[in-house]
Simulated assay, not measured.
Amino acid sequence: MSHPYRLDALDVALLAALREHPRTGLVEIARMVGVARATATARLQRLEAAGVVTGFGPDVDVTAAGFGVQAFVTLEIAQGALDAVHRDLEAIPGVLEAHATTGSGDVVCRVAAASHEALQEILVQLNRSSSVVRSTSVVALTCLVPWRTLPLLRSGAAPGSGRSPSYR
């Protein structure tokens, strides 16, 4: 079993700079955090190789893109049907993400739709899966804390390791 990559203060500073200035080139990012371009490049390559950095695509706000009705759906699935429900969920475009979970349900999905009628159709599609025994949905009203990672990364960075970057 591989061990998780241990971030240090420089890694977090690089990630913060990239997150806050996604269109800025690596030379400028290196300047912002106070390291040489080669150092920033090597660190970023290590973060990619370790699977910490998973992409550089644009973040998309699905509400702004016309899919303002969102819900969280808990699925109870038939015993041993995780692979089948995985395939069924991937076939539904409105399923943004799905996680196998503990608790009263087996899978929690985040879905998005353009209207309440479109949300109803997604819910019908979910229930058509032969693997789904029961579903429960709750409509999201307001996003209180959007997806974020920097506070967590900053709290878990190895103390005293890497350079002490000036970028915050």
Rank of each mutant, 00 (worst) to 15 (best):
A40L: 00
A40P: 10
A40N: 00
T41S: 05
A42T: 12
A42M: 12
A42N: 10
A42Q: 15
A42L: 12
A42S: 10
R43P: 12
R43L: 14
R43G: 06
L44I: 12
L44F: 00
L44M: 13
L44N: 03
L44T: 10
Q45M: 09
Q45D: 15
Q45K: 12
R46T: 01
R46K: 11
R46P: 01
L47S: 05
L47W: 05
E48T: 02
E48N: 02
E48F: 01
E48A: 06
E48Y: 10
E48M: 10
A49L: 08
A49R: 15
A49W: 02
A49D: 14
A49Q: 15
A50L: 09
A50K: 07
G51E: 08
G51Y: 07
G51D: 06
V52S: 04
V52M: 00
V52K: 02
V53E: 00
V53Q: 05
V53M: 00
T54N: 04
G55T: 02
G55K: 09
F56S: 12
F56C: 07
F56Y: 15
F56T: 13
G57N: 00
G57S: 07
G57L: 05
P58R: 10
P58Q: 13
P58I: 11
P58A: 08
D59K: 13
D59C: 07
D59N: 11
V60E: 01
V60D: 04
V60F: 01
V60H: 00
D61L: 06
D61A: 11
D61N: 15
V62Y: 13
V62R: 11
T63W: 05
T63R: 15
T63C: 08
T63M: 03
A64C: 01
A64Y: 00
A64M: 04
A64L: 08
A64D: 04
A64I: 03
A65C: 12
A65L: 15
A65Y: 13
G66P: 01
G66V: 08
G66A: 07
G66C: 07
G66Y: 10
F67M: 02
F67C: 03
G68Y: 04
G68L: 04
V69C: 04
V69P: 06
Q70K: 13
Q70G: 14
Q70A: 14
Q70E: 14
A71P: 12
A71G: 10
F72Q: 05
F72G: 01
V73H: 07
V73N: 09
V73S: 07
V73E: 05
T74H: 09
L75E: 08
L75I: 07
L75V: 02
E76R: 13
E76S: 11
I77D: 08
I77E: 07
I77K: 05
A78W: 06
A78L: 14
A78N: 12
A78Q: 15
A78P: 09
Q79P: 07
Q79C: 02
Q79T: 06
G80Y: 07
G80R: 11
G80V: 08
G80E: 04
A81P: 05
A81T: 11
A81N: 08
A81R: 14
A81D: 13
A81Y: 11
L82C: 03
L82S: 09
D83S: 14
D83F: 08
D83G: 13
D83M: 12
D83T: 15
A84C: 09
A84H: 13
V85W: 12
V85A: 14
